[in-house]
Simulated assay, not measured.
Amino acid sequence: MAITRIYLDDDALRRTMTISGVHTEQDAVNLALRFFSMHATAADLEHPIHTRTANAS
C-alpha cells in the first residue's frame, strides 16, 4: 500500500463515511476506490469517464 498526500472534498468524505459506516478517512477512500473500480464497465476502460464528461460540455 502506498502513502499518498491528497486533498479531499470534506463533504464528500463525510458523506462516504456516513453511508458506508467506516470510521477512518483511509477506510473511506479505499472503499470508494474499490467501489468505483468494481463498477467500471469495459466502455469506461476504453473511454474514461472524465474524458466523456469533459467532451459533453
Score class of each variant (00 low, 15 high):
8 L>M: 08
9 D>Q: 12
15 R>P: 00
35 F>Y: 12
36 F>G: 00
53 T>N: 09
37 S>Y: 15
29 V>K: 02
52 R>D: 00
47 H>Q: 09
23 H>R: 08
45 L>C: 08
44 D>H: 15
14 R>F: 03
16 T>Q: 05
29 V>W: 09
53 T>V: 15
6 I>N: 08
50 H>S: 09
31 L>K: 07
3 I>S: 13
32 A>K: 02
40 A>K: 14
22 V>P: 12
35 F>G: 00
6 I>C: 10
52 R>H: 01
53 T>Q: 06
1 M>H: 09
51 T>A: 04
22 V>I: 12
38 M>E: 10
5 R>H: 08
45 L>Q: 08
8 L>D: 10
25 E>F: 02
18 T>H: 15
49 I>V: 10
52 R>T: 04
38 M>A: 10
57 S>Q: 15
3 I>Y: 01
21 G>D: 08
9 D>E: 09
17 M>P: 10
2 A>G: 10
38 M>P: 01
17 M>K: 15
39 H>A: 04
16 T>I: 00
19 I>P: 01
52 R>Y: 05
51 T>R: 14
39 H>C: 07
28 A>D: 03
43 A>G: 01
51 T>I: 07
47 H>K: 12
29 V>Y: 07
1 M>L: 13
45 L>M: 13
56 A>T: 04
7 Y>E: 11
19 I>N: 08
22 V>R: 09
